[in-house]
Structures are given as structure tokens and as C-alpha cells.
């Protein structure tokens, strides 16, 4: 029994311990406890305004860039609290990469988009190989191998998003965070990205925020359902909390919470 929990802890690459995040005085999410397992794809689902994107951004200190945003609690990554004062957020972001909601390639060539991150991280080795490898992993190589010097903007939306994924892979992170990566894409591009994610799963831990429950069901091993409740003082503001966290199969087939059941069956959200 003890052995099992130890093993489980060893597998946890990222743990949230009693995390609350606020924007100024407004509390966005409260008292989150959550463990992300190494090599899993975990999806965060829930209605709008429940703070799942906020939680995701807190995992690689992207929230630092938002004025007034503050975090209480501990985010353990690799045994270190990434909110420790001694931690350099730049280092955190090198090891926990992020793909954003809107495809945001740099205004540079496809090649440079990928080489940029590697160069600034002091990559030693053949950048040509790295570009090819990253594009192959992101399933974009065949589509753009003949136009590596074209602008990243010349690609379609779905291709741009895969370019952003390739760019993230190129810096060899341990975890990839994805914030609704397919919300701006058509179904075919979405499927391609999902295939890419299945490929990436072999080497990386992925945490994805999605509004699309079918997507959560298709890609993820674990699912965290976030919900929002009104403040106790009842002034209409809402605060997000982690309602249920379990394997995707269980969440979708036999959820424990009534709200989870209602959300996945489309009664609200």
C-alpha cells in the first residue's frame, strides 16, 4: 500500500497543492488539489469562467504577465515549487512549453519559427535536423518541407497551430500545455492536431484545456472537471473549483458528482 502511493507520487510530474488564484481582489479559482501524471494527456473541462485557462497558465507562470494576478498555494514541478521566490520563470517556461488558443507564429520564416526557441536556449547541434524532426513530430513536415523559408503566416490556420506545436517541441520541454488549441480550427485540422497529440504522448506529458467534450474523450487519459459556484456572500461573482478529477473513462461513463453528469450531458455550460 505504502509502496503504491510512493510509486504514484513518483509518477506525478506536476502537482497543485491548495492553489488559489486571484485577479486583484477577485478570486478566480479556489483550493485546487490536483496531480498530473507523467506521460498522460490530461484535459481540463468545464463551463466558461470556471478558471481552467487560469489554472493552465499558472502551470508555467504565464500568469505573471497578467497584471494583478496572484497565486496562493504550491505548484510542485520536479520537486520544486515553481512559485518559490528563487525560481526563474524563464527556466520554468523552457521546461513547460505552451501552445495558445490562437495560432501565434512569429513573423518569421517557418524555419526561423522553430530555430528561434532552440537558439535562445543555447541549442548545440544541427538546427536543420532539429527543424525537420520537430516538424515531423508535429505532422507538418510533409506539407511544408519545400517552403521552409516562407513566412509562418503563409500557412493555413491549422498548419500554423501545428507550427506552434513544432516550435514548442523544438525546445524539448517536459510538459506541453495547450489552451484550447483547436477552438479556432476546422474539424479536419482539429483531427490532425489530435493525431499529433497521440504521437507526442510517447515523449511528453500534455495538459489541454478544451471546450469540446468529444475532444476530451478522444484524446485524454485523465479529465479534470472544473465548475464555478457563486460566492457565499452572494454578490453574483463566481469562483472556480475542481469538481471532479478522474480517468476520462470514469468521468464520462460514471461521474460521481451530479454537476459533472449534468455538464457532460449538456444540461449547462
Amino acid at each position: 500500500m505504502i509502496k503504491n502511493t510512493k510509486k504514484a507520487q513518483k509518477n506525478n510530474i506536476l502537482s497543485l497543492e491548495d492553489v488559489s488564484i486571484s485577479y486583484g481582489k477577485f478570486e478566480a479559482v479556489k483550493n485546487i488539489f490536483c496531480n498530473f501524471k507523467k506521460g498522460d494527456i490530461t484535459s481540463l473541462i468545464g463551463p466558461s469562467g470556471c478558471g481552467k485557462s487560469t489554472v493552465l497558465r499558472s502551470l508555467n507562470r504565464m500568469n505573471d504577465l497578467i497584471p494583478n494576478c496572484s497565486l496562493k498555494g504550491t505548484v510542485l514541478f520536479d520537486g520544486t515549487n515553481i512559485y518559490d521566490k528563487r525560481v526563474d520563470p524563464v527556466e520554468v517556461r523552457r521546461r513547460i512549453g505552451m501552445v495558445f488558443q490562437q495560432p501565434n507564429p512569429f513573423p518569421k520564416s517557418i524555419y526561423e519559427n522553430i530555430a528561434f526557441g532552440a537558439r535562445i536556449n543555447g541549442f548545440v547541434g544541427d538546427i536543420d535536423d532539429l527543424v525537420e524532426l520537430s516538424l515531423k513530430k508535429a505532422a507538418l513536415w510533409d506539407e511544408c518541407k519545400d517552403k521552409l523559408n516562407d513566412s509562418g503566416y503563409s500557412l493555413s490556420g491549422g498548419q500554423q497551430q501545428r507550427l506552434c506545436i513544432a516550435r514548442t517541441i523544438a525546445i524539448e520541454p517536459e510538459i506541453i500545455l495547450m489552451d484550447e488549441p483547436c477552438s479556432a480550427l476546422d474539424p479536419i485540422s482539429t483531427l490532425k492536431i489530435e493525431e499529433t497529440m497521440h504521437e507526442l504522448k510517447k515523449n511528453y506529458t500534455i495538459i489541454i484545456v478544451t471546450h469540446n467534450m468529444q475532444q476530451a474523450l478522444r484524446v485524454s487519459d485523465m479529465t479534470a472537471f472544473f465548475n464555478a459556484i457563486e460566492y457565499e456572500d452572494g454578490d453574483g461573482g463566481k469562483v472556480g473549483y475542481l469538481a471532479e478529477f478522474n480517468s476520462t473513462k470514469k468521468i464520462f461513463s460514471s461521474p460521481k458528482e451530479k454537476t459533472t453528469q449534468e455538464y457532460i450531458s449538456g444540461k449547462f455550460g
Partner: peptide, 13 residues
């Protein structure tokens, strides 16, 4: 801002 996030997101200072 997306461009800044993109750059900081790949570990740029």
C-alpha cells in the same frame, strides 16, 4: 500580446 506570449512561452527572456 500573443507574439510576446509566444516568445516567452518558448523560454525567451
Amino acid at each position: 500580446n500573443e507574439l510576446r506570449y509566444a516568445s516567452l512561452g518558448v523560454g525567451a527572456s
